[in-house]
């Protein structure tokens, strides 16, 4: 009873902190929004990577595609897209408040749905690939998409797209985007917490642990893999859409399909925190964000070397992440029983 009571108290405290954080630390609003983005992409990466054992290196594809779909849909509600991108910028074309916000809302939803559907199609093609082939294949999709989009003039080619600026006060805009990302992050977290407790969650875990056995048990492996990936893609697509409006201007290779930045960050976050756990990606994202902010501030010029070193060290020496490490150290915290005596005593009661 006190257990649930404690839980409720801690969740309320956490919620208060999430709501108050940008007001308490106004200088860090953008950085905190970036942290939420990391949490979102890490949680969604873990849906397939950690829980299902399919390590995608191409989830960034959905981020970039979400950006483009949201921008194109948002613009097309008010203007002709080709004219807009030809003029290379939002400076000339004015958006009313209503146009801005409906564009964002409809664009984000469209982005999420488009990404979910493209995950179904890509997954149908790629889910026959196992292990490293899947990772390479998805990485290939992300790289190819970036290259193709940067050659596609209708969406601005290599120049990218410049979206309208947030119509009100800039500081308020930062707050607005913080809450957008925080809301999405909390939603993704709650969604994962629910999903992993369903039969579906157990089935994707079975696919991770032994896909051949899962197939032999008659589990609809392909169907579940597609559903899991398209759920992840939906959230990443929406996050990409928010980013598009937050960043105002984005271009294909460095911002949208940023394969070696965010695309690899999300994997590192999950590995740092612990694959296949609910809290692991969140904790990992926080650890990574702090590491990144510190190196970007104090080791400017060497930050990427430090990042590469972090990846190597994490992968080689600390692959189970914080949660995995705790799991082997304190299995009882996670309700795992290995000793025979404990279980027998339990059964005798």
């Amino acid at each position: 009873m006190t257990g649930t009571g404690n839980k409720i108290v801690s969740y309320i405290t956490l919620a208060l902190f999430i709501i108050l954080a940008p007001l308490l630390f106004p200088d860090y609003r953008t950085s905190l929004a970036a942290l939420w983005l990391l949490i979102i992409v890490a949680l969604t990466w873990d849906m397939t990577g950690g829980q299902m054992g399919y390590n995608s290196l191409g989830n960034i594809f959905f981020y970039g595609t979400g950006m483009y779909v949201a921008a194109v849909v948002g613009i097309s509600l008010a203007y002709d897209v080709a004219d807009y991108t030809n003029a290379a910028g939002g400076g000339i074309y004015k958006f009313t408040d209503a146009q801005y916000f409906t564009g964002m809302l409809v664009g984000s939803l469209a982005a999420g749905l488009f990404c979910a559907v493209s995950a179904l199609i890509l997954g149908w093609l790629l889910f026959g690939l196992r292990g490293p082939y899947f990772a390479i294949g998805t990485l290939g999709v992300a790289i190819a998409a970036g290259e193709l989009v940067s050659n596609w003039d209708w969406v601005g080619g290599g120049q990218g797209i410049a979206l309208p600026v947030y119509p009100y006060d800039l500081d308020q805009g930062k707050l607005f985007f913080y809450y957008l990302f925080a809301g999405l992050g909390v939603a993704v977290f709650a969604f994962c917490a629910w999903l992993y407790n369903t039969r579906f969650g157990a089935a994707i875990n079975a696919i991770r642990d032994d896909e051949e056995k899962a197939e032999a048990m008659g589990i609809h492996t392909l169907r579940y893999k597609l559903i899991a990936w398209s759920m992840a893609a939906f959230f990443v697509g929406v996050a990409g859409a928010f980013s598009a409006f937050q960043l105002i201007h984005f271009e294909p290779l460095e911002t949208a399909y940023q394969t070696i930045n965010l695309g690899i960050f999300m994997v590192v976050c999950v590995l740092l925190g612990g694959k296949g756990t609910l809290w692991g990606p969140v904790i990992g994202a926080i650890m990574f964000h702090v590491f990144k902010e510190v190196t970007w501030t104090y080791f400017l010029g060497w930050q990427w070397v430090a990042l590469g070193a972090l990846i190597v060290v994490t992968v080689v020496y600390f692959q189970d992440g914080l949660m995995g490490w705790l799991k082997t150290r304190r299995p009882e915290w996670f309700g795992i029983r290995v000793e025979q005596k404990a279980a027998i005593a339990e059964a005798a009661e």
């Binding site: 999903l195 369903t198 089935a203 008659g218 579940y224």
Partner: peptide, 16 residues
Amino acid sequence: ISLPHRKMTIMQMLAQ
């Protein structure tokens, strides 16, 4: 995990 998945619909899958 060994429940007969072939007899289940998606909504049943998404239940506990």
